[in-house]
Structures are given as C-alpha cells and as structure tokens.
Amino acid sequence: MKISKAEKRVLVLTSVFVALALNAHKLLVLLPGEGQKIGLPWIFNAQELAYQTLFHFAFCYFLGLLNLQWLDWTNRSGTKARTKNVLYNLAFFFGFLFLAMITQKLIFQNAPNPRFYRLGYFFRFATSLTLIAILVKIMLLNRMQKMKELENEQLKTAYFDAEIKNLRAQINPHFLFNALSSLSALVRENPQKAQDYITHLSKVFRYSLGNHQEQLIGLDKELELLESNIQLLKMRFEDALIIHIDIPIGSQKKLPHMSLQPLLENAVKHNFVSKESPLQINVLLDEGTLIFRNTLKEATYKEPSTGIGLLNLNERYHILMGTSIEIEKTDNHFTVKLPLNPTHHVH
C-alpha cells in the first residue's frame, strides 16, 4: 500500500528523533579527556558522530518504509505472508547491521577492537527496531480505521442512493396516474386544450427525466418545474385555480428534486375546486424555509389518499438533508414547510 504524505512525514520525524535520542549521549565523548575517562578504546570525533546518526536515521526510515509501503500487514494477509514479512525484517536488520559495521571500519579505521562499536550498533538498531515496530503498528491501525470509515461511508452512500432511486421511482408513476386522470377529463371537455396539455406534459417528463442524476436541485429550477405543472392544471381548472409565487429569482438555495410537484398535486386532489370557490395557493420564502400554503376546502367525494406524496417527500428530506418537513393544518389552510439548503451543501 502506498504510504501517504502524512505517514511519510511522521516516519521522517520519528526517525530523526530516534536517531538523535540514541546517539546524543556521544556528545559527551567529544569533550576533551572524556573518552579516556570512560575507557573508550578509540578516538571518537564529530564526523563519526554525524555519520552514525545519519546511518541510524536511514535505518529507521527505510525500516518504516519497508513495512508501511512494501509489505502487506493487512488482515487479509495470511500466516505465510506474515512469516515472510518477519523474515524480510530480520534480513533487513542484519543486512543494515553488517553494512554499518563494514562502512564504519572502512571509513574511520580508528578502533583496534571492533567489538565495541559492533555491540553499540546492535543495541541501537535493536532498540530502534522496537520503536519503529510500535510506530508502524500504530500507523497500520490508523490505516485500518480509516479504511473501515471509508467502507462504512461508501456503504452508507450506496444505501442512500438506492433509497433515493426507490423513492424517486415512486414519484413518476404517482404523477403519471394523476396526469392521465386529468388528461382523460380534459379530452372530453376540450380536445384542443388536451393537445396543449400533452405538450406541457412532455416538457414536465423531459425535465424530470433529464435531471435523474441530481438529488438536490436549485430552487430556481424546481420553480420552473412547478410552473410547468401549474400550466397543466390551469388548462383544466382555469380561473378556479389561483397561484401566487413570491420568491425572488436567483435564490442560492437547494432542495430535493421534485419536492413541490407532489404538494401541488395533493392540493388539487384533496380539495373542492370551482370558480365559486377557487383554490388559492401561495408559495413564499421565510428565513431559509419554503412555505407552500393552500386554502382548505376538502372535497366531499375526494380521491382516496395513498399517502405516497408527503411520505415520499419526508423520507427524501431525511436521507438527503437530515431533517423533516413540517405540516400544519387549520380549518382554512394546509401548510407545508420545506427546509432549504445552501448551494455549498454536498451530500
């Protein structure tokens, strides 16, 4: 697995810290006469200290890189793979240890008894191996946690997408059923208007199908769809339907696609509509909330409610925006309040 920039930065800083911490005591040896006091059998200088510290850093860094980038320590790796990883680490350890001893002798040639610095290298490398192993374990656990979170998020997104598709699939058949019922009545009353109705109906379906990938849509576009639906209803009800929309153009708000259409359908479907008692609908904004309010005069013989419209809309709000719609009913009015999202919201 490729090591991330953040992991590489942590590895570099840790390697620097370990290399300095395990070689800092040698600074005392550089003081005049200190080497003789502790019985150091060779002349130790600043160049040798810098070399050993840099070599130690390289050991820590490449050991971490070996385990974080080139070896597979995930749960899916089996016992054989883990055994192979351990052997690689041992080979790396002893290979670096041998290289350190050889280069130390070739470059400096100042120790009559190499046993002393060999033991020093072995002790420092063994300690570093333990510390880097702890760091690698922590970073691997952090990777696993991030992978689980990513998988959970992907599963959650896939679930939400499936839910949205299922809910939106309910809208079109519901709308089509209502539209065909209206068209059937209009064909009998006015064939010419029925042709215009079909033209507007095709625009509505073209709009809804053309935006099938969008879950949240701009309020302006949603109002365009509402206007197309209004034209369909006005062909049938004419002056019996009075609609006022008081929303400024260019609003930077979003809401679930096709949220207003079912509200318009329900208002017409469940109320008595006539020129003597026109259905009045007001659509307005109030502090980031869209208010859809219609007069209430329930039809004596109204169509049975399937409950799909408002239930569907509320479920989509739950999934896409983490909130619910508000419904208020009085003796004279039926009001639905829809929370709106700013355009920077991303689901």
Rank of each mutant, 00 (worst) to 15 (best):
K302D: 12
L290T: 03
V283Y: 01
S305D: 12
N312L: 01
T289F: 07
A299E: 07
T289Y: 03
I308L: 09
I249C: 09
K254P: 05
G250H: 13
V268M: 12
L311F: 11
V273C: 06
N294E: 02
K254Q: 15
S251K: 13
K275Y: 11
Y301Q: 15
V273A: 09
G250R: 10
D286K: 13
I291L: 03
P278N: 08
L255V: 07
K275Q: 13
I281R: 01
P262T: 02
I247W: 06
L255P: 00
L284E: 13
N271M: 10
A267G: 06
L290E: 02
T295V: 06
K302P: 07
H270V: 12
K297F: 10
K254N: 15
G288S: 01
G309D: 07
Q280D: 09
K297Y: 11
L310W: 05
A299D: 04
V273P: 00
M258V: 15
N314D: 06
G307A: 07
L264D: 01
V283R: 00
N312C: 01
G309M: 04
D246K: 15
P262G: 06
N294L: 04
K275R: 15
M258A: 10
S259L: 03
Q252F: 08
N282T: 10
T289K: 07
L310V: 15
K269W: 03
L311S: 15
Q261W: 02
D246W: 14
Q261L: 15
I247C: 05
Y301W: 12
E303M: 09
N282Q: 08
Q261Y: 06
E303G: 06
K297T: 07
L263I: 05
L296R: 08
I249E: 14
P248Y: 10
Q280G: 05
T295Y: 10
I291C: 06
D246C: 13
D246T: 13
R293C: 12
L310H: 05
D286S: 04
F292D: 01
P278H: 02
N294H: 10
R293T: 15
S259F: 01
I249L: 11
Q261S: 14
S305M: 11
E298M: 14
Q261K: 05
K297Q: 14
L290Y: 07
E287A: 08
I308E: 01
L284C: 09
F292V: 07
H270Y: 11
L279W: 04
N266M: 07
T306M: 12
G307H: 04
E276K: 10
